[in-house]
């Protein structure tokens, strides 16, 4: 399998801007210069932070797979659970 080249800063920037726009987020509502009254980050701060986040985090999560002898068995391993502690102890008796 060919190694995928990491995205450039320009590609990351385009991705972040596009994702924000698709989510209906208007970057221009943020200040261009620091605003001590609200403390909200500037447009540049937001873009820099999100480029860094996108470059580091999603790939690290997507790179993990449940230990298994093959991908086919990996699909069966550790089914995703939102609330694992509840699932562990659930009695099924709602009145309890």
């Amino acid at each position: 399998m060919a190694e995928v080249q990491p995205p450039t800063q320009e590609q990351l920037d385009a991705y972040v801007r596009t994702r924000l726009a698709l989510a209906g987020f208007d970057l221009t509502l943020l200040p261009e210069k620091a605003d001590p009254a609200t403390g909200v980050p500037t447009q540049a701060q937001v873009l820099a932070s999100l480029r860094s986040f996108v470059a580091s985090t999603p790939g690290a999560i997507a790179g993990w797979a449940a230990p298994a002898t093959s991908p086919a068995y990996g699909q069966q391993a550790s089914p995703p659970l939102l609330y694992p502690s509840i699932t562990e102890a659930w009695t099924g008796k709602a009145e309890e």
């Binding site: 932070s49 999560i61 993990w64 449940a66 230990p67 550790s78 939102l82």
Partner: peptide, 26 residues
């Protein structure tokens, strides 16, 4: 001052979030 982590949440895809739920079970 809290905005950034709310926007970071937009940058995770659904499949990555599901992987994280699988990792919780593990």
């Amino acid at each position: 001052v809290s905005l950034l982590s709310w926007l970071q949440g937009l940058m995770l895809s659904g499949d990555e979030w599901i992987t994280a739920q699988r990792a919780k079970t593990h």
